[in-house]
Write a protein that binds this DNA or RNA. Structure first.
Lengths: 143, 143
DNA sequence: TGTGTTATTGCAAATGATTCTCAATAAGTT
DNA sequence: AACTTATTGAGAATCATTTGCAATAACACA
């Protein structure tokens, strides 16, 4: 859980726009939101915050560790709450459906590979792209 | 090796701009080039091709399998020749130095994970970010 | 080897995502 | 309540990339 206190800890003043964005991430059904998504959802619920501020707040939240930024294919950044535990993503190319996973074996191999190449690993990004079997998926893969 | 024949195979006419771009990838020291890189290198060597054409050619080459596109952090796409064999990348956050690797164990785990989640895997992208130990690295990690 | 048909190019304007400028405003402070 | 400074909003600016359109180059064929 993330609270207004987290803002202070990060050296950020507790302002209305920041609370609204934080609150949105805490309560939205969709855990992965782009700047545009955040902006629209706030507008839709009557709150209005300028798009520029949304971008600023998202970046600040990323820097202070409240959010994680992802760069999926398609150019736009997507954010989700950062709960400290790392995970990777598997994305449906048809419907955009997103699932998360964590695989200790993969993580371990990566450490090994980094060491072999003389790199001090900071982090990594792993996205698996495919077609899912969800009912609502437009080009549903018929198993 | 990629040759002009590859253009025809892909249903593309053999034009000067396309030959220049293909040739650049075949002979450039740097195997990973952005659209801007390609444009500048061509200009530098006297060839002139418009930036719009560079973008078009890169996209066509990607579609026909001659090039592979990568979306590293930083918003811009980077391309490299596609030799059919898949590999992943490890990138230095300090100097941008790039190395390639292929790990059968990681590949295998990914297939498994996709299956477990009910996905038909298309492909994936894995980037490891870290600090390298290269001499010229500005913030060189002192092992 | 000229000539036509059509893909390809160049240029400049358009786009989409994101950042920046700057004056107005709200937070936290005393 | 007044003050100092960070934050916001609105719009212009920027960056990477795409697109419209008229000029041009490829390739097929006479």
């Amino acid at each position: 859980m993330h609270t207004p206190k987290d803002l202070q800890k990060a050296g950020l003043k507790i302002t209305l726009p920041r609370l609204k964005v934080l609150n949105l991430f805490e309560h939205s059904e969709n855990h992965h939101l782009s700047a545009e998504d955040v902006y629209k959802e706030l507008l839709a619920s009557g709150e209005d915050v300028s798009l520029a501020t949304v971008y600023r707040v998202l970046t600040q939240f990323e820097l202070s560790g409240i959010l994680q930024r992802h760069n999926f294919e398609g150019g736009k950044s997507v954010f989700e709450l950062n709960f400290g535990e790392h995970h990777d993503h598997i994305v449906c190319l048809q419907c955009g459906h997103l699932e998360e996973f964590y695989d200790p074996a993969i993580e371990a191999r990566q450490k090994k590979i980094a060491a072999e190449h003389g790199f001090a690993i900071h982090d990594h990004s792993l996205y698996i792209y495919g077609d899912c079997t969800k009912d609502k998926c437009p080009n549903r893969r018929t198993e």
